[in-house]
Simulated assay, not measured.
Amino acid sequence: MTDASLLARIDRLESLDAIRQLPAKYSLALDMRDGDAWVNLFPEDVRVGGGKTGRKALRDWFDETHSMQFDGTSHHIGGHVIDFDDPDHAQGVVYSKNEHECGAEWVIMQMMYFDQYERIDGRWYFRRRLPLYWYATDLNKPPVGDRKMRWPGVPPYHGSFHDLFPSWKTYWARQGQPHDGPVEPPAPLEKFIETMRRGAPLPRPRVRS
């Protein structure tokens, strides 16, 4: 093994650890309502929406959203799959199980994020987080049935949890019949997420943390 190869492998391991800490830092800063710590997990030129960019605009959105909707939150990070596009860019899928105090209701949520990461000046950031929701409902109301996103005072809606990966619809389209095709070969290295997506477009879900 050459020195360059060894250094590249060490850099990959250090990058994996840094990227895995991003969702944990995101959750801690969000739950403790530290807007500065939260927005600093994104690049200085982060796109906020409505034509706005920058950490200040993102912090304004953070303050307004979380003061109006939630009395308190707790975000619990689950499995995290990471693929590298190159040494300074990566993408990932990470599960999150969340709890929200919303006035008289205690809303539990299951979701995942599709993330894009970028290393700038030696530090890893979220370039983008796309939230994909399975359900949100009061603790005492199981989210059985369609339109499982059930926030207080909001009509139920679909949360896009399965829309990133077409295998969900393909599986149910078989109506329980076994798959009669050959087993596909393993995904190439660093292409697990891309292989599972099979070219599916990115969903456009409604945004809630």
Rank of each mutant, 00 (worst) to 15 (best):
G49C: 09
Y135M: 14
W172G: 03
R198T: 01
A90W: 05
V154H: 14
L139G: 06
F126V: 14
M109F: 13
M32Y: 01
Y157A: 13
H158D: 11
P143H: 15
F126S: 05
R123M: 08
A173M: 14
D86P: 01
G153L: 12
R119G: 00
T2H: 12
A187P: 03
N40S: 12
W124E: 01
A18K: 03
E14C: 08
P87C: 07
K191H: 14
A4L: 04
Y171E: 05
P142V: 14
R33I: 04
E190S: 14
P205C: 04
R47W: 02
G78P: 03
H80Q: 13
S167C: 01
M1S: 11
D45P: 04
S160I: 05
S15T: 09
C102M: 15
E190A: 12
R129Y: 10
A90P: 00
A18E: 05
Y95H: 14
R204C: 02
P23R: 13
V46Y: 02
L139D: 11
F84S: 00
P156D: 08
P205F: 04
A8F: 02
L202R: 00
R147F: 12
I82E: 00
Y113R: 02
D121K: 06
F62C: 13
N98K: 04
P203T: 02
D163R: 04
P203G: 01
D45N: 08
G54E: 02
W106Q: 08
G145P: 06
G122H: 09
P23Y: 09
R47D: 10
D83G: 06
A18L: 00
L202I: 08
P186G: 11
E184N: 07
W38E: 00
F84G: 00
S74K: 05
I108W: 08
Y135N: 10
V81S: 06
G35K: 12
H162F: 13
R127I: 08
Q177K: 15
D121C: 10
Y133L: 11
Y135S: 09
D86Q: 06
K141I: 12
E44R: 07
K191I: 04
E194I: 04
P203M: 06
E184K: 10
A136L: 15
S5M: 05
G153H: 11
L58E: 02
A29C: 01
G176K: 02
L164K: 01
